[in-house]
Each structure stands twice: as C-alpha cells, then as structure tokens.
Amino acid sequence: MINVEFSKEGDSLIATVSGQIDTLTAPELQNRLVSAIEQGENKVVMDVADVNYVSSAGLRVFLIIQKKLKPLGHGLEIRNMRDDVKQVFDVTGFTGLFLFS
C-alpha cells in the first residue's frame, strides 16, 4: 500500500511517495530512506502529493529522517502535502520541524 520512487534533481534525492504511511507501511518507508541516507544522500526531498494518509507511525518516520539529515546540514523538504495530511502535522506541532514547499 506504499510505493517509493527515487530520482535525482541536481544533488537532491527526490523521494516520490504514494499510498498511505501507517503502522504497517512506515517501517518500509523508513528503511528505504535511511538506507539512501546511509549511502551518502544528504539532501532529501519527499514528494507526498500522492500520500493520502499519515498516522503517528508515519510522523515518526519523518522525525527520524529529519534527525538523521539535520546534522548533515540540510533539513528534509516536504513537497505537495495534502491538507488533511498536513493537519496531522499541525496538531502534533511537527509543522515547524520541516520545510514545506
């Protein structure tokens, strides 16, 4: 129920995610992103236009990725987040931790 595709845009890694990020799919997303970072990617952009659902398990993935990227200089950039998903970031105070575009 989740799909992640990577592409490069300059020196940024674009992770296009579709589906829903929930208790079941979060670990896979986390693994894919963490291994990308461990392979040397330090500028990561997540395009979540096709993500229709993020639960707290999904939030934890964003948080963990951010905690890994921040020390490398660039924070995680999140693109095209839907409003109902954004609402989850808002109520948990996560909005301020990421760069939304």
Binding site: S55, S56, A57, L59, R60, L63, I64, Q66, K67, K70, V88, V91, T92, G93, F94, G96, L97
Partner: peptide, 18 residues
C-alpha cells in the same frame, strides 16, 4: 509541547495526541 525543538521531540506518544 509545541515549542520543543527537533532534538527534544519524543518519537513516541504522538498517537494519543492525534
């Protein structure tokens, strides 16, 4: 706590808040 910084943000406990 909305004012927490990234480092202080706990990984758990978000669910109930949601």
């Amino acid at each position: 706590d909305h004012s927490l910084s990234l480092e202080d943000m706990p990984v758990g406990g978000l669910g109930i808040h949601i």
